[in-house]
Amino acid sequence: MPTHVVTDTLTLLRRNLRHTIRYPSMTIGAVFGPVIMLLLFIGVLGKTLGTGLASGGTGLAGTGLTSTGLTSTAHPAAYIAYIAPGIIITAVASGSMATAVAVCVDMTEGVVDRFRTMPVSRVAILAAHVINSMLTTIVAAVGVAVVAVALGFRPHATTARWLAAAGLLVLLGLALTWLAVAMGLVSATPEAASNSPMLIAILPFVGSAFAPAALMPAGVRQFAEYQPFTPAIETVRGLLAGTPTGHNALLALGWCAVIGAGGYAWALAAFRTPRAH
């Protein structure tokens, strides 16, 4: 039986893109949520948090935010250099996780059962969701980056480093999206599909996205240091700030591979298991 994985994926991607355009509320949320968060952290909390971090004085090397040589008015600008990469990652995480709801809702549509009775590639049905979600996530991440620059984010990175950061973000998004697809497939209801991925979407907060792990209380700190988002955040931050990323880049790639492969395998297995109704 010839399978047309690529053709089928493109056909179904067109379908998903139409959905995204005609029913854009999820997408708008995915794009504007992180932007609003950025405005909140910089405009409202920036000064306080920046000051707090500066006096904490660790973990901020290379961001321009050190305990010496900064006037208090410089803190927001320096803080944005610290958190912008974190918020971009948050955008990637929440954008990816929104796929779970979309997939779960789609599975309740009779038309997907129709696809299952047709000679359509199984991978294509899921891959179309993944690509559609990736496109949304990329728009969201670029949106956050643009707003961050407008707010004074001035990364000193070469084009190669920008591309490396973007590449890592895409890989992370891809891995998380496959995981989200699996979570959406095993969720009985869209409500459930929005809950469990939420835990993953807030992981960056319990990492080094908004504050260095070193400043966190013991226990939380160990978790923050070893969870998957921290090396990704540190790598992106390092790449954009022009500082060495150390072993974080490898760690981040490893996490992406593990999460992505696991999510992919889980998603396909879940899709092949018929849903009871």
């Binding site: 139409r18 005609r22 549509e109 038309v111």
Partner: peptide, 11 residues
């Protein structure tokens, strides 16, 4: 197959 519940894409 035409199932009991309509299998059309409503969007």
């Amino acid at each position: 197959v035409t199932g009991q519940f309509s299998a059309v894409d409503t969007l």
